[in-house]
Design a protein around this nucleic acid. Sequence first.
DNA 1: GGGACTAAGGTCAGTTAAGGTCAAAAGGTA
DNA 2: TACCTTTTGACCTTAACTGACCTTAGTCCC
Lengths: 156, 156
Amino acid sequence: MRSIADQIEAYLIKLLKLSGGSVIEVQRSEIAQIFACAPSQINYVLTTRFGPEQGYLIESRRGGGGYLRITRVEMSDNELLEGLLDFLEETLVPFHGGERLLIRLLEEGFLTKREVLLMKAVIGQQALGNALPHPDLVRANILKAMLQTFLRDEFK
Amino acid sequence: MRSIADQIEAYLIKLLKLSGGSVIEVQRSEIAQIFACAPSQINYVLTTRFGPEQGYLIESRRGGGGYLRITRVEMSDNELLEGLLDFLEETLVPFHGGERLLIRLLEEGFLTKREVLLMKAVIGQQALGNALPHPDLVRANILKAMLQTFLRDEFK
DNA sequence: GGGACTAAGGTCAGTTAAGGTCAAAAGGTA
DNA sequence: TACCTTTTGACCTTAACTGACCTTAGTCCC
């Protein structure tokens, strides 16, 4: 069974699509009610699925008339790449984090499906094995090296 | 008598057939319950019967709503690729060896130039660093994982 | 303007629900 | 017996989820 988090994610994405534009405003408590879950669950979904890595910006306001605003952020290829490289600079990459990042690049049309599969294969379990000392760090380095490929002249 | 492992294998294969498509999602604990065995038994079956050599890809997710996803990846009859995989099976890959291999694949029209650059980046110094215990082995594994990507259905 | 009250959203630590790993015991078979 | 395959269980990691408590913003009343 799909988890509630997955369902909420799907719901919000649907809202974004329906809204035509790239921004929606929702009430945390309302969403929580729809899915019969704790309000903090919504925060969980937002942080795990709608972070900057996935290409979203979250703003919010508390108090009466408060809201959550979810914005899909469009970026140029270079901005996107450089942002991702910065991100990788400071971060370790667990497999699923890396995967989401790649999906983002696919959605942006930056990578082909074939390339994503290729890169997924690289950062996956099988390739890295368990023997390595710091798999998350190695993953970050590998992704960085691959992405930097695209910053080269010939691809601009 | 057929071992439980064999029965589980048969069951999963049946599920795959029934599903029509080439992918199923199951819960480890559920399967374990059906066959009244330890959950880790399922992992055993997966690693011994549903590895890449047998033409399957395993993905999984932990935590609430976790699952095991088994994907059938059709083997291509392409001798070159399979030959290369065999070759990698027994060999370590120093950087320049790996590079030659990629160039050959480019010449054969298997990879685009872009893909070759991508893969070269992966097996290069920067990505793997110097800290790793067996860089040549890691390189072999990574290349293997990447090439196996191309054995999948969608690329035939 | 300043409390007091109300209506939001935020945080975080802790619990629950998965799957992963590994070594060791058990079972088969040449 | 020696070796290989199965099977299990103890322990680990990761993801999902919740609830108690906190912060911020607006409203009403004096």
